[in-house]
Amino acid sequence: MKDLIKELTETYGPSGNEELIRNIIENKMKGLVDEMKTDTLGNLICIKKGKGAKVMLAAHMDEIGVVVNHIDKKGFLRFAAVGGVFPTYLLAHRVIFKNGIIGTFGKEEKGSTKGELKLEKMFIDIGAKDEKEASKYVHIGDVATYYRELDVLGSRLTAKAFDDRIGCAVLIETARKLKSSPNAVYFVFTVQEEVGLRGAKTSAYGIEPDIGIACDVTDTGDTPEAETMAVELGKGPCVKVKDRTIITPLKVKELMVSTAESKKIPYQLEILEWGGTDGGAIHLSRSGVPAGVISIPTRYVHTPSEVLDIADVENAVRLFVEILKKNLKKEGF
């Protein structure tokens, strides 16, 4: 599974530019489902047909990035955030554009350590000598993402874009492991989550699921002096209780918890004080959908070096497979 995760995280795909990552996922899903389609916004919808409850599983393909808003006379690129990008995450890191152009970050008053670092006082240096040269490679509106390889840290992994390529990996692996299901399973790889859960909104509207489960990363509280959060790496995937976009319906939470307990899959309960996931958009679709989220505990989310534990990922796959084996119509969905 590590190879899959490596390939997915290293692929370029900021919000609105999910074509490359979608192609890769499409190839992986080929043969595992009965039907595949890409909708208007670019969501990849893979359907494993069945007569039972319609289950929508969602993981977002997009990652955060930076968008060029100005090329100055000296060839430096000014930029804005696409999704939750913070200045301290960027400085000294490298980014890559869709065409392979690489850049690094600089800041105004470069020697000074005083004052708050702000995006509008930073710029991208792609090595261009002037505006003319920079304009050959990069245009206003082009989006770059972190340029970073995956590394193995013992039983843990570090990479960019675990948010949410790890969710994509979990869904792909679930599709591989799921021999049959009494339910109709919709594996949905969504777009534009990082800019406001947009892909999940339109795909859920189209699918009209009986139950929705998103798979995404969540924060942890297990690092030195971290804000209190009862989630640790390696203690199992999380059953989300609430975040800023959803209060998981008890019925969905209980389904996840009882499945984990009966199959002896380790799990943690997650209360995330900030942030949200596609689950938020799905549960408010049309007249409402019972929806929840299974999260992978991840440190340093939205940085180029997020860290997670591979066992949590494997256990998330087990949990998804066991849930999908159940006849969810009989469970009341």
């Binding site: 808003n69 100005h70 804005a80 696409v82 947009r198 189209g206």
Partner: peptide
């Protein structure tokens, strides 16, 4: 080109209406 990521317009709601536009 408009400077990216400033302001918002009706297109935001139209783009995500129903199954997307």
């Amino acid at each position: 080109f408009k400077r990216p990521m400033i302001g918002g317009t009706d297109a935001g709601k139209i783009r995500t209406a129903k199954t997307g536009t």
